[in-house]
Structure formats: structure tokens, C-alpha cells
Amino acid sequence: MRSFAFSSAENIEQAVSAQSDNAGEGAYIAGGTTLIDLVKLDVMRPAQVIDLNGLPLKEVEQLDDGRLRIGALVSNTDLAHHPLVTEHYPLLSQALLSGASTQLRNMATTAGNIMQRTRCPYFRDVAAACNKREPGSGCDALEGVNRMHALLGTSEHCIATHPSDMCVAMAALGATLTLEGPNGSREIAFGDFHRLPMDRPDLEHELEPDELITHITLDTPVVGGGSHYIKLRDRASYEFALASAAAVVAIEDGVIRDARLALGGVATKPWHAVEAEQALTGQPASNESFEEAAEIALAEAVSREHNAFKAPLARQAIVRALKHATQAAMNS
């Protein structure tokens, strides 16, 4: 592994100034499950690594307005099992526990999960062309082995999938990120945080190099909502999604009052299916409505040589997630 300098930040201000002083050439480390992996592969080459684990960002707390504020350093395991999450946001718990392995969830943090990099094999291989790793070098995935790649939000420069499960639940639930920088803190909606690849796939999010995610605040839970996360993959556990769907449904007199839907494994960012949600609202909670929502969610899908099978897979994931969420709403 390439060498780097190392420092431990004792407070948020130190963490931010360490990056500002460094012209953003450093990398923050929390769980390290993405960073150390990619430094070993020589894909990420930080001059300095700044340890964040001493920062006071490990709390989960309910705010007075009913929202849930999650510290950036809360581990994926602790978040999945937190009583406020299992009670009010079971979708998030389910998505978290479907991701990675026990060991990785113990290490990985909430903000780190949001910042994780794609699993595209061409991104991870420094001998391959990749516009995300090396802007302007091309994209070997376009005509390569693209079975795992995205259908939605792609561009002619990048078709890499966003790998997170947790983020799919957050896209459905709605959340706000708090970012701390040299000029103080600012907030950004979760849905606006990740960027589409377009012609700059190396620019993955709205975080500036000298900014730090400090908190993730979930919107208030959908009143009377049932939820479900379904993940379809090549093996039953410890595998990234081929397609996944997160759904929240609230029913009144057999009619959908509120619906939330997001997709994973098929898009270049955690995919909030806004138009499908709008189409579901006011419709009967029936298979026909769910099928139609799935059609709408995948209307813009563009497949490549090896990943066309993902469209029907995602359609089935959406229908099943909506069906199970409806059952959960009925039983609640």
C-alpha cells in the first residue's frame, strides 16, 4: 500500500482545517472499509489520511420536530439496531442489514456509507479506462462486461452503479445532510447530494473537498406507513444488489394516501422514483397500480449488452416491495 501521512482530528474544526490546509489532497477515514480497500488497489492515493473517530458524532437522537438526527460516525450495525430506527424506520434497518457483512457493518459508518465508491470492476482496476477514476480516459464498461451496471441515470461517460443499500432507504424516506466547512455549516437534501455522472463521473457528490458530513437527519416517518426493502442478488447474503427496491406505503380506505419508492443496483445514484410515487398516490393498492408504477420508474432505462435482465428484475422488485409494504401498512 502506498504511503500517506496520518493524523487524528480531535474536533470538527480540526478535521475541516486539516483538509483546507491540504488543498483537499487528504482523505477522511472513519470505518476505512472503502478507503483502505481502494488505497491497496492504488485507485485512491491520499497524501494524508485524517482519522475522524475522535469526533463526537456517534449519537442518534429524536429532534423536537419528530425527525431523527444521526451522527456521521454511527456504525451501520448500531444504526440498524437502534430502537428509534427499528421502531420508526424499519425500512432503514432492513436495508442496512441486507448490506455487506457483520464485520463490515461493524466498521462502516453512516456518512461513510453515503460516501462509498462504486464497485465497477473497471473503476477498481487501474489498468482499465475509467472516466470516474481518471477523467477523460474513457469507459471500458460501455462495451465490456457490464452485467452489474446501471440502467438509470447513465451517460456515455459512465454506467457505474451506486452500491449502497442504506442510501436507497434514505432516498425513499427523505433526509437532510449537514455539512461542515471552513465557512460554517450548511444543509443539503439527500436527493440533491449525489450527482449524475453526465460528462464528469469523477464528481460524485456536492461535498466540497474541505467539507465534512456531520449529521444525517431523516424526515418524519410517514404516518401509518408500512415499508419493505427487497434486494435481489447473485447469492443470498454478502453481495451487492442486481436490483433493489425500497417502498413505503400508507393506505386509507384501500387507496394509497402516500407512497415512497427508491431503487438500488440499477442506477448511478440512489434512485428516488418520484414520478412513480406521484402515479401511485390516490390509486387503489392493487397489483395493477404497482405494475404501472414499476413501468413508470423504469421508463427511461437504457440497457447495455449484458444488463438488460435487470429491467424485469427491478420491475419485480418494485412490485414485491410495494406489495409487502402495503401488507405491513394493513397490519400496523
Partner: peptide
Amino acid sequence: VNSCLKLAVM
């Protein structure tokens, strides 16, 4: 934890 992904200094 996976000790291969954890810096000893941490």
C-alpha cells in the same frame, strides 16, 4: 472486524 481494512494506528 476485518483486520485487513483497519489501520493499526487507529
